[in-house]
Amino acid sequence: MTPLSKLSDHELIQSFVLGNTGAFECLVLRHKDKLYTSIHFLVKDKYLAEDIFQDVFIRVIDTVRGGRYTEEGKFLPWAMRIAHNLCVDHFRKVKRTPTIKTGDDTDIFEILNFTEESPEEKLIKKQSHNRVRDMLDLLPEDQREVIILRHYADLSFKEIAEMTHCSINTALGRMRYGLINLRKMMVQKQIAL
Score class of each variant (00 low, 15 high):
88 V>S: 11
56 V>H: 08
125 K>H: 09
106 T>Q: 09
12 L>M: 08
168 I>T: 14
176 R>L: 06
183 R>A: 15
174 R>E: 00
112 L>F: 11
75 F>Y: 12
109 F>A: 07
42 L>G: 07
141 E>N: 02
137 D>L: 04
19 G>A: 01
192 A>M: 13
80 M>E: 08
65 R>A: 02
48 L>C: 05
25 E>S: 12
74 K>G: 07
60 V>P: 00
139 L>A: 03
144 R>Y: 00
132 V>M: 12
174 R>D: 01
108 I>M: 08
182 L>H: 00
24 F>T: 00
94 V>A: 03
106 T>P: 02
131 R>A: 14
87 C>D: 06
62 D>S: 13
48 L>N: 06
37 T>I: 13
26 C>A: 15
106 T>H: 08
178 G>A: 06
104 D>Q: 07
152 Y>C: 06
33 D>G: 05
109 F>T: 13
20 N>E: 02
185 M>S: 08
159 E>A: 14
108 I>Y: 10
193 L>T: 08
60 V>R: 01
62 D>T: 07
178 G>N: 02
85 N>G: 12
79 A>I: 07
127 Q>A: 12
66 G>D: 06
158 K>S: 14
129 H>N: 09
172 L>W: 03
53 F>M: 08
136 L>N: 03
40 H>F: 15
178 G>W: 02
5 S>K: 10
125 K>F: 06
172 L>G: 06
82 I>N: 08
145 E>P: 00
